[in-house]
Design a binder for these strands. Structure first.
Lengths: 149, 149
DNA sequence: AGGCTTTTGCTACTTTAGTATGAGGCCTTT
DNA sequence: AAAGGCCTCATACTAAAGTAGCAAAAGCCT
């Protein structure tokens, strides 16, 4: 929770700086209002993306967890029991899904708002847990075990 | 695709209106820069939320579509017409099948009694013909197009 | 036999993937 | 408050994968 607070703090700081620049330059007439508004708009556009992404992730997590608790659902698409059995975490499963879609590590990183390093770590752990040597093998296994569609 | 364009058109319109308000009121000195920036920021914050929400919806939709297709057509047969259409040769298809099994280039080479160089050539051609950037993507496409099981 | 495609293979690169290790923050449980 | 699992990220490697360009051999087709 703290990083979010820090993030917002920094954002507010950035905004204040923007205001300052805006005010100063308005006197000089160098920077136009449009530019400042555009920067702020862009900034908050991505903040919105980020924010929504995180809230949805949490919701998904809760959903899948409740799904695993419900033993009566065979879940025609994904076998959550199998995921549990293999010891795959939520995040690892996320990455595995993206992997199966044919994305590169860098693309997965972009899609999940993470760094490539993190994806590599996850992938490495996935390969270990699935006892696979390559990502292609992991994908094949994952489809067989119905932990990805 | 069209709703997105319309949406962005409306957004640009909103921005222009904001600019107008800003300029007009600056002369009168009623509304401050901060307010305009804040409005723009808030606006785009929600735009970000909305945008991300929809992109995720689409992803989910695509997933369910492919899922329903799989359930409605359980035929595990290979579409040779598709292979022809793509211009894949016999050997390339052989390699593609091995690729989908999760084998490395070296392993495919051993399995087909060829050198790794040859496999690389084939793989490169496969990727080109399938318009894929990586072998994982090629596998995913190949399964969708039913040219591998 | 000459023209065609396919198959095979090479060298020399560039780019991704994957491993090993460490570290810090967050969250839950104890 | 301490402990442990999870997530994130980084560095520094090594190992595959993929690209570009070329070329020889084989098979096929009238």
């Amino acid at each position: 929770m703290r990083p979010i607070i820090i993030g917002f703090g920094l954002l507010i700081l950035c905004l204040l700086i923007l205001f300052r620049i805006g005010e100063v330059n308005f006197i000089k007439g160098d920077v136009k209002l449009e530019v400042i508004v555009a920067i702020a708009a862009l900034l908050f556009f991505f903040v919105g993306l980020y924010f929504n992404y995180h809230s949805q992730k949490k919701a998904e997590q809760a959903q899948s967890f409740s799904a695993t608790n419900n033993t009566t659902t065979p879940s025609a698409t994904i076998d959550y029991e199998q995921i549990k059995k293999l010891g795959l975490t939520q995040r690892e499963h996320d990455v595995l899904v993206k992997m199966a879609e044919g994305l590169s590590n860098q693309e997965i990183a972009t899609a999940l708002f993470l760094s490539e390093s993190t994806i590599k770590t996850h992938v490495s752990n996935i390969l270990f847990k699935l006892d696979a040597k390559r990502r292609t093998q992991a994908i094949q296994l994952a489809k067989q075990l119905k932990i990805v569609t």
